[in-house]
């Protein structure tokens, strides 16, 4: 995993609530056996019309919107546990997703892949979405070490929460498997001493 650096980028406003992982990456694209290349089919059925042409109405197809930050409606990432959703966003170049609420499994998957979910208040989310739609050139800064998100052009700023352990992992590019592998003896001792079953 790459260490997470401060991100300063334009952002893509996606004004839809309850975006499920089937929308982020539809099941028919889950046949690959590696982690790469899923970005091509990110939001496939919203991005492309049925016959394959790009849908000009969809934000990712509009030149004025681009960047490493996706700002989306509440309850982002619900549904399937497919980690392919996090891989697709990352592969597409997204490093931060901002929403007012994230589904649990998606949040874990994102964090395990160096993609930062930033949870903000519904109020701030509404303001960000509103401003970005009219000012696509505005940049958002996400500073993980100080846990701050800001949109200076609109004088918006806020603190965001992240678990201390996850924060350290992201900043250092260290993952949970590395940690667990270092604990094998403790795990074996636990197995020995199980008082039940």
């Amino acid at each position: 995993m790459q260490p997470f650096k401060t991100i300063c980028s334009r952002a893509i406003p996606l004004v839809v609530e309850n975006i499920d992982t089937d929308q982020i990456i539809p099941a028919r694209f889950l046949k690959a056996t590696t982690r790469e290349g899923f970005g091509e089919n990110l939001f496939r059925d919203w991005r492309f019309n049925r016959e394959g042409s790009p849908n000009p109405e969809f934000v990712l197809n509009q030149d004025r919107y681009h960047g490493q930050i996706l700002v989306a409606g509440k309850n982002f990432g619900c549904g399937s546990s497919r980690e392919h959703a996090a891989w697709a966003l990352y592969d597409f170049g997204i490093r931060v997703v901002v929403s007012s609420f994230f589904a649990d499994i998606f949040k874990n998957n994102a964090l395990n892949n160096g993609l930062l979910p930033v949870q903000v208040s519904q109020d701030l989310l509404d303001q960000l979405l509103e401003y970005l739609q009219h000012h696509p050139e505005a940049e958002i800064t996400v500073d993980l070490s100080s846990q701050q998100i800001s949109l200076p052009a609109a004088s918006l700023q806020s603190h965001f929460e992240i678990n201390a352990h996850k924060k350290t992992c992201l900043l250092q590019g260290f993952d949970d498997i590395d940690y667990l592998l270092s604990q094998k003896e403790v795990i074996a001792a636990f197995e020995e001493n199980r008082s039940f079953a």
């Binding site: 546990s81 497919r82 980690e83 392919h84 996090a86 499994i105 874990n108 998957n109 395990n112 892949n113 993952d175 949970d176 498997i177 667990l180 592998l181 604990q183 094998k184 795990i187």
Partner: peptide, 13 residues
């Protein structure tokens, strides 16, 4: 349910 990175955690540990 878990993601694939977590599947790897379980396989490994």
């Amino acid at each position: 349910g878990i993601g694939t990175s977590e599947v790897e955690q379980v396989l490994a540990t």
